[in-house]
Simulated scan of single mutants.
Amino acid sequence: MRSRVWGGTAAAVLGALLVTGCGGGAKEGTAPDSRGAAASGAHPVTVTDCAGATTTFAKAPARIVTSNAAGLELLLRLGAGNRVIGTGFPPGKGTLPGALDAQARKVPVLSRSVIPKEKLLGSGADLYLDTFAAMDAMGGGGMGGSPTEEEFKAAGIKHVYLKSTACAAQNKKPVTDLSAVEADITSLGAVTGTTARAKELVAGMRKKVDAVRKAVGSTSPSSRPTYFFFDYDAGTKQPTVVCNRQIANAVITLAGARNVFADCDGDFRQVGWEDVIAENPDWIQLGVRDRGGAAANEKAFDEAEHWLRTNPATKGLKAVKAGHFLRIGSERTTIAGVENADTVREIARTLHPGKVD
C-alpha cells in the first residue's frame, strides 16, 4: 500500500483546496461542452494528501487517464471528458445515461482491468485519477506492479485519488453521509477548472438525499429494516461485507436502513456465513459488478439470487424466503459518484414504499 494516499474525510479534501476554479454546467445525464474549460479555471490549485504532502496544479490538466469507469464518469459529468486520453476498467456500453455513454465510447481503453504499469507511465498523461488505494490490490502485481510516486513524477504524471473510495479504510469514524463524495467532486472540479459544474452536481445530490432524509430520516433505528450488501463477485465461499467506513454504509444509512455489519470498523471484511445467518437481514442487495450490458447484468443478478435461494446456508434467511432482493450494482453503491444519491433514493423507495417520491 502506498504511503502517499489521499485521505478520506471531507474536511481534509475541502481544507486542501487553497484556490478553486470555475467552469460551465449542464443538465444531469448530458455531456457538458468542455471546450475552453481549462481556460476558465482559477489556478494554481493545491491539494494535499492524508500524509500532508501537497500537489499543485499550475493549470488544469489536459491529458487525463482514469483507473476505472468511476473516475471517467465524474470527468464526463464535470465537462472534462474531452481531456481523458485513456481508462482502465471501462464502463459497459449503455451503462452511462444519455450523451455520457456516447462520449465514454470515444475514450481509448488502455486495459479492461488494471492498466499495466509501463502502459500507464508511457501514456502521455499529465494526470492519473486513481479510484483504488493500490493497483496491486486489484491484480496489478503481475503487470509490473504499481508505479511509485517517483516513477509518476519522472513520467510527468500527477497522481490523485478519489479519496472517499481509495482511503475509506483510513477513516477515523463511521461514514454515514456523502460529504466525502461531495468533497471528491468539489476537489476534482477545482483541479480541472470546472468548479461551477461541480457545485451543480453536488447540489443535485444533496437535493435527492435531503428529500429521502425528510421522508424517512426520523424513523427510529429499531424500526429500520436490516440490510445486507451481498458482494457476489467477491466470492461466495466466504462473504465479503461492507463495514462502517465504506461509502455503502452511508448509502444504506441515508436510505433508512441498518447495515447489519455497521459495527465492523473498516471498509470491507471477510466474515463467515454463520455471521450473516445470525443477523438474518430483512433485505439483501444483490451487489453484482457491471458486466457491460443490461442483459449480462440481469443474468448476473439472476445467478446471485439463485445462489442465495439454493445454498443450504442462506436459503432459510428471512430476506431470501420473502424474496426481498434489490438489484442494484456494486459500483454505484461502493464507489464515489453522483449515482450514490440515486442509490439512496432507490433503496429508500423499496424499503419505505409510499414515503419517497
Rank of each mutant, 00 (worst) to 15 (best):
V5D: 00
V5R: 01
G8S: 07
T20L: 06
G21P: 01
G25M: 11
T46H: 05
V47P: 00
D49R: 12
T54I: 09
A60K: 01
N68Q: 10
A70E: 07
L74D: 08
L78E: 05
I85F: 07
G88F: 11
L100S: 06
V114W: 04
K117V: 05
K119S: 11
L120I: 13
L121T: 04
G122A: 14
G122I: 15
Y128G: 02
M135T: 14
M135S: 12
D136S: 10
M138L: 13
G139V: 08
E151A: 08
V160S: 00
K163L: 09
S164L: 02
A168P: 02
T176L: 12
V181L: 04
V191K: 00
K199E: 11
M205K: 04
K208N: 05
V212Q: 03
T219V: 15
S220N: 11
S223Q: 14
T226S: 15
D233A: 11
G235L: 05
Q238K: 15
C243W: 04
A248R: 03
N249D: 13
A250S: 08
L254Y: 02
D263Q: 14
G272S: 12
W273T: 02
N280D: 15
D282A: 08
L286H: 01
E303D: 14
T310R: 10
K318S: 08
L326S: 01
I328D: 01
I328N: 01
I335S: 08
D342R: 05
E346N: 08
